[in-house]
Design a protein around this nucleic acid. Structure first.
Lengths: 112, 112
DNA sequence: TAGCGTTATGTCTTATCGAATATAGCGAAT
DNA sequence: ATTCGCTATATTCGATAAGACATAACGCTA
């Protein structure tokens, strides 16, 4: 018996960042490529692109620097703002999880 | 810009209780009827029944006391254990939300 | 004993979402 | 100029989930 959680940040009532999108951002940061990131996360390129696009549309600063064409066909890297988002979210998520684990002890609640 | 969260409790890796199921339990508690609760939550009787059944199968103590037939066709009420679940979950959820709201101040993270 | 409203459960259809497919543009390298 | 791999974007297709529908058991009431 364990407690789980998902947190996300909304903007104008619309989902801005959450677990999946942050994971995707991390992969893009590592791979310097949307398609490679999508592959590693076992999702279609289109889905990854849509998720990133949704974020970008909601953000007031760009998250990604994209190059089309070039020696390897293209590339995508994160802006400082994009990297900051990852850090912020991870920190918050960790805090939340440790808080909940400390708070939730099945026995003390009479749940078996 | 605001932070949102969903918490749930798992048992053997399977979802036991979460936001929706707790909401349903509350309605059943008020209505003394699965069908009436489903109606108020705008879901089909079958869906409500399935959700409740899933919980019951995972719980080690019964959550519901059901009567079939009778003057109004039947009824369903909560056991003490069922009511305890609601209380526990609500308390935990509230704590989590206030914690996150206190923790998350967009400005301090540089998120605009 | 016929009717009613509820719980109980299976089946069948519909709707939604994601995946696959298709097509185009780009720019460096050869 | 041609090729290549990536970004970009619309459209079609299929699988899965949600919902509608159907049917039965039950026991009180009239």
């Amino acid at each position: 018996m364990e407690i789980k959680s998902r947190i996300w940040i909304e903007k104008d009532g619309k989902p801005f960042i959450g677990f999946g999108k942050i994971q995707l951002l991390k992969m893009v940061d590592e791979e310097h490529s949307i398609s490679a990131a999508a592959k590693r996360l076992n999702m279609s390129y289109k889905k990854a692109w849509n998720l990133l696009n949704d974020m970008e549309l909601l953000a007031e600063q760009p998250l990604l620097v994209k190059y089309i064409g070039g020696k390897s066909g293209g590339s995508t890297t994160l802006t400082a703002y994009g990297k900051a988002l990852i850090k912020t979210f991870d920190a918050l998520n960790n805090k939340c999880e440790t808080f909940l684990n400390k708070e939730f002890k099945p026995e003390t609640h009479g749940i078996y």
